[in-house]
């Protein structure tokens, strides 16, 4: 009788971390199989501080109840940087998060991490991508000093570099899997303050809506931020979010994107490698997006992660997944971002 192949040990399943800007988005993410949902309060303590978005205490309490009933966890982003004059607002946000019973807070500022670990030792801490920790030394420092349990890697590392970090830290590593890309000096970008007087790290948004103007002109659709022309789109062009880093400017007589073209990160094809190297969680960008976006992206990534856990090396990205993701992406192209650097 032929010997049956020994069953392979089940791979540790990657957690899927999905965005929720509103209660319906939270419910849809949970219903479609998100393991963690991340969200923010309705103020500048988080980096998606937009009118009408985010959670007050009541909707957060209801959201936590809903997620917990269905076995999902709720992570609260407190991922902007308090200033000396505004410290108490961020401190009180940590206290409210602990009192409401969120499963973890995602924090960037070291002062706030110190406060949270001292005042609420039972509250789980995740180091935000805005914390800009790109080496295992930096992550391990935050672990030893503040007891962080998970770190979100900045989107500047190649797969090889990410692999080294994962192998040299006891901290769970979360990586970005999908969503709009910006200039990626995470936690350090002040570009928008030149046009708006506000930076994402202190006010929670790099294109505050009050500074944005869209206007149809005889030369095309123009987007402006604080009066600065960001881009002009001909009828066949596809506009993106009006941030300076995705602007098209005239440089030495040439008109092009000097910082970055508007593209979306999509790492589906890297899933087997991310799983094998021991990444703990995959993050989906997009708290500013609609429940329809959250539904599509959560469904596709849930299916893909489950397929990857089953099939491992035999895993292949299904065309239907790519088609669904392409239909909701910003920009006309998807990229592997910094993960893929053939020149290295």
């Amino acid at each position: 009788m032929a010997q049956a192949a020994a069953p392979e040990a089940p791979a540790r399943r990657l957690k899927l971390v999905c965005p929720a800007g509103t209660p319906p988005a939270l419910k849809i993410a949970v219903d479609q199989g998100a393991d963690d949902v991340y969200l923010g309060f309705k103020d500048e303590t988080n980096a998606r501080n937009f009118a009408g978005l985010n959670f007050d205490e009541r909707s957060l309490r209801e959201g936590i109840d809903y997620a917990h009933r269905k076995g999902a966890q709720v992570l609260l982003a407190l991922n902007t940087f308090p200033q000396p004059a505004t410290w108490r607002k961020w401190q009180s946000a940590v206290d409210r998060a602990a009192a409401l019973g969120v499963d973890a807070i995602i924090v960037a500022d070291t002062g706030l991490l110190a406060y949270a670990s001292r005042t609420h030792p039972a509250l789980r801490l995740h180091l935000s991508v805005q914390g800009s920790a790109t080496s295992h030394e930096a992550i391990n420092f935050h672990h030893e000093r503040f007891g962080i349990r998970r770190a979100v890697l900045p989107r500047v590392l190649s797969v090889e570099q990410a692999e080294k970090v994962v192998s040299r830290t006891p901290v769970e590593i979360e990586v970005f899997g999908f969503g709009s890309l910006s200039i990626m000096v995470e936690g350090r970008c002040a570009l928008s303050s030149y046009a708006t007087g506000e930076s994402p790290n202190t006010h929670g948004g790099c294109s505050p809506a009050r500074a944005v103007r869209w206007q149809e002109t005889p030369r095309g659709l123009e987007s402006r931020l604080g009066g600065v022309l960001i881009d002009r789109f001909a009828a066949a062009d596809h506009p993106g979010y009006p941030t300076l880093c995705r602007g098209r400017f005239v440089v030495n007589g040439d008109t092009y994107y000097p910082f970055e073209e508007p593209t979306s990160l999509n790492t589906l094809e890297l899933l087997p490698r991310l799983q094998a190297m021991g990444v703990a969680a995959i993050k989906i960008e997009g708290r500013q997006r609609s429940p329809v976006y959250v539904q599509t992206v959560t469904r596709v990534w849930r299916e893909a992660i489950d397929a990857c856990a089953r099939e491992r090396e035999r895993f292949r990205v299904r065309p239907a997944w790519q088609e669904a993701l392409a239909g909701i992406s910003e920009g006309r192209q998807c990229t592997l971002g910094a993960y893929h650097r053939p020149w290295k």
């Binding site: 419910k27 809506a209 944005v212």
Partner: peptide
């Protein structure tokens, strides 16, 4: 076309309504 902040407020409010 028009006031972007109000447009965003309306969009996000509609997104919260079940």
């Amino acid at each position: 076309e028009g006031d972007t902040e109000i447009a965003l407020l309306v969009k996000n409010t509609l997104d919260t309504i079940d």
